[in-house]
Design a protein around this nucleic acid. Structure first.
Length: 275
DNA sequence: GTGCCTGTTACCTC
DNA sequence: AGAGGTAACAGGCA
C-alpha cells in the first residue's frame, strides 16, 4: 500500500530518527528472497560495518545511503520498518534485521513477502527507469503534457505506470482523477488541454494532502500502512472516492461506484467523472 | 473449509 | 506501445 506520501513519511521519520549515524554490525535474513541480486551471505558481508548516512526517496523506493553503497527498499504491499532492541524476539513476519553496534536493530516486516531490498553502488542508475517526481520541479506542465501526448490508452493505467510518473499508486490515482473530473477509463487521445491541466494540478494536490496527513492507513490490522513508530496515517478520512463505494460524492451527492480497471479496484463518481 | 478479495510490480504473449 | 493475463505471497472475510 505504500505510495509516495507513505514512503516519504517513512523516509522523513528515518532521517529524523537515531538511525542516521548508526553502524550496522550484521544482518539477519529470515527470508532470503527479500534481497535481490545477492545471496544472504554476500549481502551480509557487504553491508557489515557500513554506517547509515542519510535516508531519501525516489518514487516508491526508500533510499538508505550507507558509506560505501545505497540500500534501495521497495515496500510493495506490506513492508514495514521499526527500530527495536535487538534482544527482542523476531516477529512472525520479520524478514530482515539489521543489527547496530549499540544493541538496537532495524526490523523489517513484510507479511506478503513482496517487498524487495537491493544493495547498489549508484541509486540513480538503478532507478533510472522511473519517471518524473511529481512533487519536484521537474514535474512541469510542459513535461507532463509531452508525456500524455506521447502515449495512448486509458488514463488510469497510464498514471499507474512508474515510468511515466513515479510514486502514484491505486489510491492517489483514483483521488487525482476525481479531483480533475476524469473517468479512469478515458482515453488519453480524447483529453482536452483544460482537463489535462486540471489533472496536472490534482496530482501534486492529492499527494501533498496525503503527505500532510502522514499517509493513508486503510483497515485496522497490522498489514496496513503504519509509519516506523507504528503510527497510522490520517489521510483515509480525507479520501474522496477510494474505498467510498456506495457513499455520496462530496461534490455532487451521486453514489460513488467501484469497477475493475486493469485488474485494480477503481473508484469514481459516475456524475462528475463522465467519459 | 472454500473461494474470492487485496494497496505492487515484473514478465509473458498477442 | 498497449492490452490482457499470470505470478510472486499471505491472510482477511463472507
Amino acid at each position: 500500500m505504500p505510495e509516495l506520501p507513505e514512503v516519504e513519511t517513512i523516509a522523513r521519520e528515518m532521517r529524523d530518527s537515531d538511525l542516521v549515524g548508526m553502524r550496522i554490525i550484521r544482518a539477519v535474513i529470515a527470508w532470503p528472497k527479500t534481497i535481490e541480486g545477492l545471496s544472504s551471505g554476500a549481502f551480509s558481508q557487504k553491508i557489515a560495518n557500513q554506517k547509515i548516512k542519510d535516508v531519501s526517496r525516489r518514487g516508491k523506493y526508500l533510499i538508505i545511503s550507507l558509506n560505501r553503497s545505497q540500500l534501495l527498499v521497495h515496500l510493495r504491499m506490506t513492508g514495514k520498518f521499526s527500530i527495536i532492541n535487538n534482544a527482542q524476539k523476531p516477529h512472525s513476519h520479520e524478514r530482515v534485521r539489521l543489527i547496530f553496534a549499540d544493541g538496537r536493530a532495524l526490523c523489517y516486516e513484510d507479511q506478503r513477502k513482496f517487498g524487495r531490498w537491493q544493495l547498489v553502488d549508484d541509486s540513480a542508475e538503478a532507478l533510472a527507469h522511473l519517471g518524473l517526481e511529481p512533487l519536484s520541479s521537474e514535474f512541469t506542465w510542459e513535461a507532463f503534457l509531452a508525456m500524455l501526448k506521447k502515449h495512448s490508452g486509458q488514463i488510469k493505467p497510464f498514471l499507474l505506470n512508474q515510468e511515466h510518473i513515479a510514486g502514484l499508486g491505486n489510491i492517489y490515482v483514483d483521488e487525482a482523477l476525481w479531483e480533475a473530473k476524469i473517468h479512469p477509463q478515458q482515453l488519453l487521445s480524447t483529453l482536452n488541454e483544460n482537463t489535462m491541466k486540471a489533472l496536472y494540478h490534482a496530482i501534486p494536490n492529492v499527494l501533498m494532502r496525503g503527505l500532510a496527513n502522514k499517509g493513508t492507513s486503510l483497515g485496522d490490522h497490522r498489514a496496513n500502512y503504519q509509519s516506523m513508530r507504528g503510527a497510522r496515517g490520517k489521510n483515509q478520512s480525507e479520501l474522496r472516492v477510494f474505498h467510498r463505494e456506495g457513499c455520496p460524492c462530496v461534490r455532487c451527492g451521486t453514489t460513488i461506484v467501484k469497477i475493475v480497471v486493469v485488474q485494480r479496484g477503481t473508484h469514481f463518481c459516475p456524475h462528475c467523472q463522465k467519459i
